[in-house]
Design a binder for these strands. Structure first.
Length: 220
DNA sequence: GGTGTGATCGTA
DNA sequence: ACGATCACACCA
């Protein structure tokens, strides 16, 4: 797929209206609403070395606030790793897992509640060369961003960016006018074990997009 | 296409 | 001990 011309810097180009960032109020809602509305928004990392790297969000999962959702990092309240979840909404929560992967979330709810949306897959748009170089094991385009660890690696999102304000930082979200699907795919979340909210159907995706990791997982 | 398993380490 | 995972081996 050819790269689309995308005003990732939000710098007005002559004759072309800038693509607006998602407004701050967008995030001050239940993560389940935010997750659906994040579908088809564009995640951008204005990388200091590679320049803009971006993709359209095609899969997301909601994780609720403190005490509500045993599958959520916020369930037991703030700690060292998840402190960002309890700060202001509209920030990037990046955590390290399985001893080797980074995963990226958007903080939701009013400050202090906890709760976030995990971005699970992107359709690559911009900076594909940087994505390929950061993910040398990828064979096909859909190997670049088809999972939370993969998209974080492709975009260069690490713990150094945890807490980034999406309305000001080098990582942000754009609304280019593409609405969420009227009928998004929906299933239980991936990787949640039995007794930790595995029955909660809080995963959503853009139907038919090749970057989405397969249909509903079996509980484990 | 599918399933099963090892890697690797911060947090609890 | 256990992960909000990935890659690779192997079978079909």
């Amino acid at each position: 797929m050819a790269e689309l011309p995308l005003a990732a810097h939000a710098a007005p180009v002559g004759g072309t209206p800038p693509i607006p960032r998602v407004p701050a109020a967008f995030y001050v809602r239940d993560p389940r609403e935010v997750a659906v509305d994040l579908l088809n928004k564009v995640l951008v990392h204005n990388d200091p070395v590679h320049g803009p790297i971006s993709g359209r969000i095609v899969e997301a999962e909601a994780y609720l606030g403190v005490g509500l959702d045993p599958g959520s990092h916020a369930f037991r309240g703030p700690g060292k790793r998840n402190a960002t979840m309890f700060g202001p909404p509209g920030r990037l929560y990046v955590y390290f897992t399985y001893g080797m992967h980074w995963c990226s979330n958007v903080v939701c709810n009013p400050a202090g509640a906890g709760g976030a949306v995990l971005m699970r897959a992107l359709a690559p748009l911009e900076g594909m060369e940087a994505m390929w170089s950061r993910r040398p094991k990828a064979r096909r385009e859909r190997d670049l961003c088809s999972g939370p660890g993969k998209l974080a690696q492709a975009l260069g999102l690490t713990g150094a960016l945890d807490g980034t304000d999406l309305s000001a930082g080098p990582v942000f979200l754009l609304d280019d006018g593409t609405p969420p699907p009227s009928r998004p795919g929906n299933s239980v979340r991936i990787g949640i074990s039995i007794g930790k909210g595995e029955e909660s159907p809080w995963r959503w995706w853009v139907p038919g997009d090749p970057n989405v990791s397969g249909p509903p997982p079996r509980p484990r």
